[in-house]
Each structure stands twice: as C-alpha cells, then as structure tokens.
Design a protein around this nucleic acid. Structure first.
Length: 108
DNA sequence: TATATGACGTTGC
DNA sequence: AGCAACGCCATAT
C-alpha cells in the first residue's frame, strides 16, 4: 500500500458514528485535493484491505449514496441516526466531520 | 506508450 | 432539481 492510500484510509478510520463525509472532503483532508476519484477506488477495493473501512459514511458531493449499495448504505446510515431519503442523505449532504471551515462550501 | 474506465467534482444551462 | 461537458488521476488492458 502506498502513502496516498494510507492517508486516505486513516481519514476514513477517523470517522465516527453518524458522521458523513464526501469523497472530495476525504481526499482534501488527507492532503490530496485532486484525488476524490481515487478515494472511491480505494473504497471499492476496501475488501482486499486488512482493515474494516466505514465505506457507508462516504457519499458524493451531491449527498448521493453509493451506486449499487444504496439500500444497504441507507440502512447502515439510518442505524447511526442519519436521515436518508430517495437515495440521498438529508442531514449532512456535504458534512465535513472534524475540520475547521478553512474552505467554505456552498450553503443549502 | 496509448486508451479506456471509474463508489468523483465543478461549472454552466 | 437534473443533465451535460470538462477536468483529474490511479488502474487496467
């Protein structure tokens, strides 16, 4: 595993219950702002890793759930207190987890 | 080496 | 809200 994957996994493992973040935020917090796609790639193959990665706490910038795992992800998120409806989260669409608002994003 | 492909993001319409 | 076009970047072939 290279350094980038390591940083990304570390950020993912820092997520707690009820905390939802996005691929872009994970990449940015990990220190690689342009690697949102790679975050998805790491999660897609997280089963090959020796660690249990909370993939269900990651959605895209639109708050959309993971394609192909929407039902399972919705159930897991709801079990943690996150409101999910019509395949997208309601509470924390672009929620960062524990980061000062250095770069403000769009407000609903 | 070159091309295609994504669990993505932003912008413009 | 939804869609299309473009940019990005590691992997796969």
């Amino acid at each position: 595993m290279n350094d980038v994957q390591r940083r990304i996994v570390d950020v993912l493992l820092a997520l707690g219950e009820g905390e939802v973040t996005t691929y872009g935020d994970v990449a940015e917090v990990a220190g690689y702002p342009k690697r949102a796609r790679f975050v998805g790639h790491v999660l897609a193959h997280s089963g090959e890793l020796a660690v249990d990665v909370p993939w269900w706490r990651v959605v895209n910038s639109a708050g959309r759930l993971v394609p192909g795992h929407e039902a399972e992800q919705a159930q897991l998120l709801r079990a943690e207190g996150v409101s999910v409806a019509a395949g997208h989260v309601r509470n924390a669409p672009v929620g960062r987890f524990s980061r000062p608002p250095a770069t403000p994003r769009r407000q609903p």
